[in-house]
Write a protein that binds this DNA or RNA. Structure first.
Lengths: 350, 350
DNA sequence: TTGAAAGCGCTAACAG
DNA sequence: CTGTTAGCGCTTTCAA
């Protein structure tokens, strides 16, 4: 059995109360006593039980983090920043991977609820009602997701998001200026809030410029989805309706697009321009260097950590985005090289 | 305040003892009573406090996982498998990122020690003594690391590792058979146990074939390190001592090597062959497709989870490895042609 | 089959 | 400044 505070107290010849005070750095202890207690504690290799402490104080010193896919670099960066910021405050992290499944997310939330002081829900797939309901058990930080305006935001809910609008709008304008006429967007998972934001921004920006937009969905926003989607796009097109540019939900998806193009012998950016989102790739990973939208998962992690550390009631912060132009986007390929120039009507599913 | 078992008991008209029994599925409760308690509990939205339960049972239902870099896909896969396996048994996970730092690792261990039932140390950078010492506080599963034979292995320590020897040996023989004469190995972090294994396997295999081996180190085993190391290798060599093949600590490093070669106009595998380790890349990510050593982080995660679930005293399991030949390794380039300033086409006759 | 009571290890009044 | 006392929410003897 591990050493308890009672043994420390006994060995130091003081009461448990005094031992507790000495150990927890209360100033209501004379220095000599404190030193004695501390020395004894060290000698006995005493580690206070956070469990017992939590039970009485009602504070656990832990926060729970639930995310859709711990294998996705976006969440991994987010988590790294969160962990290091909170770790510096001696706060521990309970982690749960919901695997994009809202039921599993709820189960995890339940399991964590009695052993954490708060919860960070990254890209939650739960309904607004479920989330609002959960705030009655715990303070919650919603990351990369916002409640639809309608529902009243409870006091114990913070929201930190990435405002993708400027970035995606700039991307569309950038492509338009380069003469692109048909752009396809490869979206993220169906229930993704940020996917909705991106679709919305793109739809608006394209409409403003009179550019047709095609949207295709994926289940998981990774390399494989991007590659598969791009293969379908390329295979399913004759020259006429093949997009001149592909925008992706994130850099991983864009990487998949680049791979599919390479495999199909399609030059990027010669024939098709490609852009990603997150600016998450180290220099040189993508070839050609990927035009992307700078949206830092790390920054989001920091904001989430601050919301946890500083729960000033409801709050809502957002990370700005901007376009980073690199080598994967260029002047549009001349349609004449394709078979025909007659524009086709494109369906749009948003 | 959340509902307590006392309130449930009161509302159901039974004692807390009975309520507890009903809730925890003890058979010493008449069915009618159980149903009543359960109904009341549901009505009150009761969630049992794991904290309180832990305090009395001495079991937390959590395990801690400490790893060197949560941003590294290897650990991320490992963690995903671990989380999902343990999650299925309703076991929670406390996570800690040591950032390759053994002091931080020890701090995390301390912090977790009173709120977990066991600890998984992935690629621990702590000393054997520290690890052995820690087993007195907790059952420990060492993943991707073994104690040096000397120290007696305590009963509460399990070790699950990847046996890289077959894979790296096969890689060396493969290169030798292709006529390679100078191979350079780009290693992982200084204190890495698996790095030591790899160096050892390579050194032996090369010695057996009379092939010289150069080893260069990195701090963090990622894309950037691989790229930088490869740049140095290429820049620092004139044609004569430039390696004909580069082996890497893992696929991320190998990816960096590929990028550096591409940037320098060096053809892979025409001029230099490259191989990674882990077989962690989705098909199409690397170009050319990467020859690698199949060593599954997921499998390691599963073994670690089993060691936690089934603590049959000391145990030691290992995952086997084998070479997966793809397109990044080929017949060695003839030194005489190396000095040409123009990159050579891929094909080569033999 | 149920209930009363004794803690798990710790902190937080309240006295002294 | 220090000690005594009462729990935090739960499980688990031990009796009934």
């Amino acid at each position: 059995m591990a050493t308890t505070i009672r043994q420390v107290a006994a060995a130091a010849g003081v009461s448990v109360a005094t031992a507790s005070r000495a150990l927890s750095g209360s100033d209501a202890v004379i220095e000599a006593t404190r030193q004695r207690v501390l020395a004894v504690a060290r000698g006995l290799d005493y580690t206070p039980s956070r469990l017992a402490r939590s039970l009485v104080t009602g504070l656990t010193g832990n926060v729970g983090v639930i995310l859709p896919d711990i294998t996705n670099p976006f969440y991994t960066s987010f988590l790294a920043e969160l962990e290091s910021t909170l770790g510096a405050h001696d706060i521990g992290i309970l982690i749960g991977d919901s695997q994009e499944d809202s039921d599993r997310e709820y189960t995890l939330l339940q399991r964590m609820s009695t052993q954490v002081d708060g919860l960070v829900l990254a890209s939650s797939r739960m309904s607004d009602d479920q989330i609002v309901g959960a705030t009655s058990k715990l303070p919650i930080v919603l990351a990369n997701r916002m409640l639809r305006g309608a529902s009243p935001v409870p006091g114990r809910l913070s929201q930190v998001v990435i405002d993708v609008d400027p970035g995606y709008t700039a991307a569309v304008r950038h492509l338009h200026a380069l003469g692109h006429t048909r752009v396809t967007y490869i979206d993220g998972p169906p229930r993704s809030w940020s996917g909705l934001q991106k679709r919305t921004a793109l739809t608006r920006a394209c409409a403003e410029l009179g550019m047709p937009l095609t949207i295709v969905g994926t289940d998981r926003p990774g390399f494989g989805s991007g590659r598969d989607a791009a293969e379908r796009i390329v295979d399913g097109s004759d020259g006429d309706d093949c997009p001149t540019a592909i925008l992706a939900f994130n850099d991983q998806v864009a990487l998949g697009v680049l791979a599919a193009c390479r495999a199909a012998g399609i030059d990027v950016p010669g024939h098709i321009s490609v852009a990603g989102c997150d600016d998450s790739l180290p220099d040189g990973l993508a070839w050609p260097a990927l035009t992307t939208i700078d949206s830092s998962a790390r920054t989001l992690g920091r904001l989430a950590a601050q919301a946890i550390l500083n729960p000033t009631g409801e709050r809502s912060e957002s990370v700005q985005t901007r376009l980073v132009v690199r080598d994967s986007t260029a002047r549009a390929h001349q349609p004449s090289t394709f078979h025909s120039t007659v524009p086709q009507p494109l369906q749009e599913s948003s």
